[in-house]
Design a protein around this nucleic acid. Structure first.
Lengths: 194, 194, 194, 194
DNA sequence: AAATAATCGAGACGGTACGTCGAGTCTTAAT
DNA sequence: ATTAAGACTCGACGTACCGTCTCGATTATTT
């Protein structure tokens, strides 16, 4: 067994911590993750974690950002409705199924009673997600399917809001029926604004 | 056949606990509330809390339910759009401003990593809220403004989803512009179904 | 199952408590006996115990006294040395082996930091034991083997003191060698005082 | 090969705990001493106590041993009788009057229903006391006052046994009359063995 | 190459709160 | 009127993590 500074300077330790945090959330659930647990799992001293992060949520935000850096490019189907539907399917998969989505839900939950976390999420995570949600609408606008003065952010919220509501609040599964209705509603808005 | 002290829990203790829990959430925030703190504030032994509740969230669900028992009846304005708008104003006030709403947000947040809490919320709290959200739609249906085969629950989700999304996820204020858009969209849905 | 006052007045409850206390000491050891445990075992309400006894040690003193009421009469062998040796054998058996002796040791131990218990023991238990310890000496005096002005209590202490010392302090077994020495020493004292 | 914080326990914390334990026993009595109380008094975290000691008795044994490390050398009076008498006077003072003796009595009491404590006492405390009790006899042997084949440990027990009996069992004061009798008896034993 | 400084692991520290246990007091319904 | 049942307040238990703090070992940089 090896001791002392086994990570050269720090990069390796940093990655070990993020990886351990990710693993632990998946294995034992967000609520049961502790700084001590992450340190033990990562083979890192507690102090090393405290040197770089303020709290376990801070670690998890970094882990989440690191994971979601991998850009997934939405294939262009040539039409707004199909583009949007494909994106929403992907969004639902992320929120309901993926490990990454589990972390997102946990962090969003924790942010309800942690103002600092809420601020970080809104500064670093949400803009990225928002940008992705806008893609189908921006493409539609480029195609001229959408009037230039339409409030895309507002339209986005009307579409993704109900999905998040189901996932975060009611806990009911997001059904194809809901997605159909949302796509129909968005299409109506685009066509109406012509 | 009864025996022993069958009067069971002391009503005074129960109320003191719920009141203390409510007060503490308002004063120091959900994350800082502890069972010990509630017990001290309520002048009650910790054991008494543990006898009747599993956790602090369990206490707060009870407190929330007790508070929200007071039905607020939505005034009938005679038209769907105005009914709905009045209801949404009230909903936003609840979510963003009220103490009760702060508890709701905290509990919903905690439910993201506490399955038992999630189950309780979905069984005891959400149906009540859902029923309130349906009122404008049900009245519209009674007036014949809405086709009988419309999926009211779906319509409700499309309207309240974006509001919860702002409050819980983005943290942005719910603006009149959003409410206008939601009412317009809902009206469209009703008129279209004629 | 039966409830309420199932013991008529009280005598039965009293006996049930003493019996339960005795059993529990034998089964789980003095240190693990609790009032609640005695009450549960006896099928009696805690309050009933508190009505008659101050503490668990108080119960156990009563139980001990009740048990040791059965007088064991020391057979008269006709000579001091053999009388004394028989008595000491019996004393060692009591202290080292018997359940009753285990209770005696526990109570004596507890009395080191419980003044009330110490007082009760010295008033109710020790005189009885002392009386038994005197028997061989008193018989010797009656036979004229002992001078009338000998301090029997002092002689008794010199004989039983080392035995209690081994049992309570060093925990070493009381060996025949020790008993032989003690008997010899006592005999010397008696013969010298002629 | 060492690694990590191998300096182990903090000497300051250890001493603070032992001192606080000693003080508390003297002030409020053994039965009222709690781990929490010791921790608070010592300005130490409870966990620190639990890290190094199993129980309050374990702390007190350490405190007792630390206190009694200070060897008291018995002055040599030149004769067995006076040596022994001086030692017994000192022993009685220890058992009946000193704070240290109070701890000894409490620990001996507790050992009646705590096997682990009993074992520790017999391994670490009693041999030291026994050694002290032997001193007058060993000196007598060195002077030739005692036959070489005398069982000194047995003689010691016959002398100190009755003293412990009074202190621990009957609670009566150890009188000069008893000490006189014990010294006389021991002298007889020594002279007889010439 | 040797000395120096930064950073690592390990883990002890003072704390806070946890959830449990038993003490001793109280109230209620059954007998 | 006394009991069994059991809820109550209280205090301590022993545990889990928190965030801070040495400590000695291990590098990486500086001399």
């Amino acid at each position: 067994m090896y001791h002392g500074n086994r990570h050269g300077r720090s990069a390796a330790a940093r990655e070990a911590v993020l990886q351990a945090a990710d693993d632990l959330v998946a294995e034992i659930g967000y609520a049961n993750v502790t700084i001590e647990g992450i340190a033990a799992r990562a083979g890192v001293a507690k102090q090393t974690i405290y040197r770089w992060w303020r709290s376990k949520t801070d670690v998890l935000v970094d882990a989440f950002v690191a994971d979601s850096t991998q850009e997934l490019t939405l294939p262009d189907t040539g039409a707004f409705r199909t583009d949007l539907r494909a994106h929403l399917d992907e969004l639902v998969r992320f929120l309901e199924v993926s490990d990454s989505g589990a972390v997102f839900r946990a962090l969003t939950g924790e942010a309800q009673h942690d103002l600092k976390l809420a601020t970080r999420l809104r500064a670093e995570v949400l803009p990225r997600l928002r940008a992705r949600d806008r893609v189908p609408f921006d493409r539609a606008a480029a195609r001229g399917e959408l009037s230039a003065d339409a409030d895309v952010d507002l339209l986005v919220e009307q579409v993704v809001g109900p999905i998040h509501f189901r996932v975060l609040v009611t806990g009911e599964p997001v059904t194809p029926a809901l997605l159909d209705a949302l796509v129909a509603q968005a299409s109506l808005a685009t066509s109406r604004s012509l």
